[in-house]
């Protein structure tokens, strides 16, 4: 097993099913993830895209679904569209959803990142914001203001 590069954990007052839905349904992701849609059928081997909700040709991240066990575990590869065919440049994101007391623990692990890459810098800024906003929308019905608009270049 490779050493993970980043591990993010958040506890959310919700159910595993709702959290899975929030990660995989474009109507949900657009509300808290820079107005982007995560698009896929989420079957192992399928592709997935992280694209502008209003302009699906504007794709920021592409990858493959490696593992998919709703509502517990989702593993995807993660790359810029320019690197779609170059698997050496794909990093890997694992979402683990576990019941925790009355809530749910979400662990996001992002590894196989290239050291000092633009992607690495972008995701370290992006994940904490996206995950805070995800928690907010599931617990209060409202995302955090910073995550609702589009940003020109996005990774996480």
């Amino acid at each position: 097993m490779n050493k993970p590069k980043f591990v993010y954990v958040t506890y959310i007052n919700t159910t595993p099913e709702k959290l899975w839905n929030a990660l995989t349904d474009g109507e949900m992701t657009k509300q808290y993830w820079w107005r982007h849609r995560n698009a896929s059928d989420w079957k192992p081997g399928s592709t997935w895209r992280h694209e502008d909700y209003d302009d699906s040709k504007a794709v920021d991240i592409v990858g493959k679904v490696v593992e998919s066990q709703p509502p517990q575990r989702l593993v995807v590869t993660w790359a810029l569209p320019a690197d779609a065919q170059n698997e050496a440049k794909h990093s890997r994101v694992t979402f683990e959803i576990e019941p925790y007391m009355e809530a749910v623990r979400l662990t996001v692990t992002h590894d196989e990142l290239e050291p000092d890459s633009a992607m690495l810098h972008s995701i370290t800024e992006g994940w904490p914001k996206v995950l805070s906003s995800l928690k907010s929308i599931l617990e209060t019905g409202k995302p955090l203001a910073m995550s609702t608009g589009r940003r020109s270049r996005t990774a996480a």
């Binding site: 097993m1 980043f6 954990v9 904490p128 928690k135």
Partner: peptide, 27 residues
């Protein structure tokens, strides 16, 4: 406090900075 997340790799426990709670305070 969820500021550190841990992952087991074999017999090693690795510690990771988890900035999500700090981001919540910031926001």
């Amino acid at each position: 406090a969820n500021l550190v997340a841990t992952v087991w790799r074999g017999r090693e426990k690795l510690h990771y900075l988890n900035p999500v709670p700090i981001n919540e305070i910031y926001e």
